[in-house]
């Protein structure tokens, strides 16, 4: 799977990395337990600091999307695709809240929001942008 990073984007590079890996998991292109490149190799492929990759990996590890097994490597978490726990749902709500607030300010209707979600889910599944 190809990851495409835009160095000049407003979104930090580590987030771009993490988000694209998560999309890969969501569309099942990255199956559970698939190995990911080592931090050093990934950073070399990006010609960027290892710190950036580390940050992305830790971000995904915190979300239980990947597993970092010392001396063995980095893998997609075996439970990466799972039913959310109550805590995870609360966290999702917290993260969605400011976005919804902004949408209310911009007077985007619920129907429009629902259509947006529909469209984005389809795009993630298809792997398009």
């Amino acid at each position: 799977m190809f990851i495409e990073i835009e160095p000049d984007s407003a979104i930090p590079i580590y987030l771009q990395l993490a988000q694209q890996i998560m999309e890969g998991i969501a569309r099942e292109e990255l199956a559970p337990e698939t190995p990911l490149p080592s931090v050093r190799a990934f950073a070399a492929d990006l010609s960027m600091n290892m710190h950036t990759v580390n940050k992305a990996y830790h971000y995904l590890e915190e979300k239980k999307m990947i597993e970092i097994i010392p001396k063995k490597g980095v893998f997609i978490h075996k439970d990466a695709v799972r039913s959310a726990t109550a805590e995870e749902k609360i966290r999702m709500e917290e993260e969605l809240r400011p976005i919804l607030a902004e949408a209310l300010c911009l007077q985007i209707s619920r129907e429009e929001l629902a259509a947006m979600i529909e469209k984005m889910v389809r795009e993630i599944r298809e792997g398009s942008k």
């Binding site: 799977m1 190809f2 990851i3 495409e4 835009e6 000049d8 490149p37 990006l46």
Partner: peptide
């Protein structure tokens, strides 16, 4: 132009 860096996750396999 928009700069892009490409990484293939399977490259080393």
């Amino acid at each position: 132009k928009k700069e892009k860096v490409i990484v293939d996750l399977q490259f080393r396999n």
